[in-house]
Amino acid sequence: MNAITYETRRESYRKVLRSLGNRQSQVFTNLMIHQHGATASELAKDMHSFGHFLTSDRNNVHPRLNELVELGLVRILGKRECKVTHKTVAVYHAVPVAVDVALEELFNE
């Protein structure tokens, strides 16, 4: 990838990250911690334990995950058994370039 394309892509991610709503930002930030991805239920459980939600219901995060997938910040890696529900479900992963840009934004503020 040439330098112009690379920088254009990073600027696009930067704009999208800056436009996220509070819950979208929380879900994306918490998903960044999971290097190998997480299921909606696993993420909801973690966020509940951090005090973001009153319950660990997956419906707290699933709509935001769908939005983040549509924005191109999160992708579905595949399926595996969820550590919470023990069902085979989708695994979500933060897009590496978006994570890099998010960390740059965090440390440049």
Rank of each mutant, 00 (worst) to 15 (best):
A44I: 00
A40M: 01
V84P: 07
D57L: 04
E67N: 05
H36I: 04
I33S: 14
S49V: 01
D57R: 05
T55E: 01
L77N: 12
L43H: 09
P96R: 12
N59Y: 08
T29F: 14
M47K: 00
D46A: 04
P63T: 13
V84H: 14
A94W: 14
A44W: 07
H86G: 02
S41E: 15
T88V: 13
E42N: 07
I33R: 13
M47W: 01
H52C: 03
L68R: 04
K45Q: 09
G78R: 05
L68F: 09
A94M: 09
D57K: 07
T88Y: 14
N66Q: 15
G37T: 02
N59A: 10
K79S: 11
M32C: 15
N60T: 06
H93T: 00
T55F: 02
P96G: 07
G72T: 11
L43C: 03
K45D: 11
A40Q: 03
V91C: 01
K87T: 07
N66G: 12
H86F: 14
P63M: 13
V69T: 14
N59T: 09
S56Y: 15
E42I: 05
E42L: 06
V61R: 03
T39R: 03
H48W: 14
P63R: 11
V97R: 02
F50R: 05
S41R: 09
F50S: 04
L73N: 07
R64I: 11
H34F: 13
N30M: 04
L65W: 02
E81T: 03
L54V: 03
H34W: 07
G51T: 10
D57I: 01
H48D: 13
E70R: 04
K83S: 11
T39K: 06
S49E: 15
L68I: 08
D46S: 09
V91R: 00
F28I: 00
K83P: 05
T88E: 15
V69K: 12
H52K: 03
L73T: 05
S49W: 10
F28K: 00
Y92A: 01
I76L: 10
H62P: 00
R64H: 15
E70K: 05
T39F: 11
G72S: 06
N60Q: 14
M47T: 02
T29S: 13
K79L: 08
T39Y: 10
V89K: 12
T39Q: 07
R58P: 04
G51A: 09
N66F: 09
K79M: 10
I33D: 14
A38H: 00
M32V: 08
S49T: 13
E67P: 01
N59C: 03
N30C: 05
P63F: 15
L54F: 13
S49I: 04
A94T: 11
I76G: 08
V89Q: 10
L43D: 06
R64T: 15
A44C: 04
G72P: 07
V91Q: 02
R75K: 08
L65V: 02
P96Q: 12
V89I: 09
C82Q: 06
T88C: 03
N59K: 04
H48Y: 15
T55K: 01
G51F: 10
L77T: 12
D57Q: 08
